[in-house]
């Protein structure tokens, strides 16, 4: 999908010599970002800074909020882990196997990027509701998906899958077949080749995909709220709690929770960037 990033940035020639437009484009970029992204985000922290420590704790870490964080984190973590395995499987099949309809399957992996989350949400609910397409078959087995935390995980799997597949796929594609051949001539079995050679090489990409899927699941709203059931402290995710607080005109409460979520988003962003650096440093000649 995305054109592969260059393996090595070419630092060795100066780029700023002859080309015009640096000031103009940099100015425009900074202006746009400040106005649209930085200033509004800073607002959250200004607003919460107005709260006393105790008031902030009461707003951001009351029982209902804690339950919401736990649910959001737990579901996003579970979904990201499932996606890490499933995403590797899908990427493996797409890169290494040849079969009828492969192109179609490849295009379909991006569906969660293209399908509006609300549509995904009502469709998943229709499938897993007790009277739904799959739900009606699962409920007799004692598996209730919709309106439970399990439903939240299902929705998060849906939206996170392409993130893992598209991160792992190019690395798997570029994997030198000679590495596997070398391992085989050295006496490794196929399983040893996978565990000791292929998996370690894919690991940074897998972790990046995991972190991306986790971050996406954590903030997800549209696809989750329809299937979640939204029972306070049971199946109420953190973003939903923000919306509910806003609807009850508790702007401060919403902001406090948003601040907590933002801090986690930034931490995850940092982790993802560090993973990227690690990948660059250790895995490129």
């Amino acid at each position: 999908m995305t054109p592969p990033p260059p393996s090595k940035p070419r630092w060795n020639f100066s780029r700023s010599g002859t080309l015009p437009g640096f000031g103009l484009t940099l100015g425009l970029t900074l202006f746009y970002l400040s106005l649209l992204v930085l200033m509004p985000l800073a607002g959250v922290f200004f607003k919460t800074a107005g709260l006393s420590g105790a008031a902030f704790m009461a707003k951001a870490f009351n029982d209902r909020a804690l339950a919401a964080y736990r649910l959001s984190f737990g579901s996003a973590l579970t979904a990201a882990m499932i996606n890490m395995v499933a995403g590797l499987l899908v990427a493996w099949v797409l890169v290494r196997y040849r079969f009828l309809g492969k192109k179609l399957l490849d295009a379909m992996v991006d569906l969660p990027f293209a399908l509006p989350t609300a549509v995904a949400g009502i469709a998943l609910t229709a499938i897993y509701a007790p009277n739904g397409w799959l739900g009606s078959r699962l409920v007799p087995l004692g598996i209730q998906v919709a309106f439970t935390p399990l439903g939240i995980v299902v929705a998060m799997i849906f939206i996170g899958l392409p993130l893992v597949v598209r991160t792992v796929e190019p690395v798997l594609q570029d994997l030198d077949t000679q590495l596997e051949e070398a391992a085989l001539t050295l006496g490794a079995t196929r399983i040893q080749v996978f565990v000791r050679v292929i998996l370690p090489i894919l690991l940074p990409a897998l972790l990046t995909g995991f972190a991306l899927a986790f971050a996406r699941g954590l903030g997800e709203y549209g696809s989750v709220i329809f299937i979640a059931g939204n029972m306070p402290s049971v199946s109420e995710i953190a973003p939903l709690l923000i919306v509910i607080q806003l609807e009850q005109y508790d702007t401060l409460g919403a902001t406090a929770i948003a601040a907590v979520m933002l801090v986690f988003s930034f931490l995850l962003l940092l982790v993802i960037n560090l993973l990227q650096v690690w990948r660059q440093q250790r895995f490129h000649h």
Binding site: V44, G219, Y221, L240, I242, A258, L262, S265
Partner: peptide
């Protein structure tokens, strides 16, 4: 990496 809900909220603020 910002939740869409938070994105809405910041403009409310």
């Amino acid at each position: 990496s910002v939740s869409p809900v938070v994105a809405g909220l910041i403009f409310m603020l």
